[in-house]
Amino acid sequence: MPIDKFITLQGTFVPLPIENVDTDQIIPARFMKGTTRDGFGDNLFRDWRYHKDGAPVQDFVLNQGVYSGSILVAGKNFGSGSSREHAAWAITGYGFKAVVSSFFADIFRNNALNNGLLPVQVSEDFLSEIFAAAADPATELRIDLEQQLITLLSSGRSEPFDINPYKRNCLLNGFDDIDFLLNIKDEIVQFEQNR
């Protein structure tokens, strides 16, 4: 699936200061019965966001009406557990384009990148500062993928972030891995023959 290009992103963010947010919380298994990539955003954080009867949980951050934006900021070890790509689809389906945390689970990181969702890993200290800055919901973050830099605009503090150069290039240009692999199919056949 071709992905959207990602170059820079600036705006307000939604703080979720919870650690070890596993993919079962991001999208519970019972909402994974779709056969397309669409519609998962409606059930993002389902059991934190809605009561059993479907009524919104008023004090959950997505329901408070205080925070908005296309950047989600979460506690460390975000996306652990199940490999379900539905988690990335739920996050992008809701409208997020980047997730900021001090630590990401491996499979989630790959799934996010394959869907044009940028995982931005920051230091524990910077993450705390971002959460503190959320006291003002108008505070903005700026993520610059070309420079690999994230900036908290209220204090001006910046931090560089890591991303695999190949993946960075894919996001900047909207390429996906399958295009790359299809282009080297002869090499794959050659590899099979030489085994």
């Binding site: 790959n110 799934n111 869907n115 891995d177």
Partner: peptide, 11 residues
């Protein structure tokens, strides 16, 4: 993930 499932199916 599923994008990777597609990659392996394809290549």
């Amino acid at each position: 993930g599923t994008s990777e499932v597609e990659m392996v199916l394809a290549t």
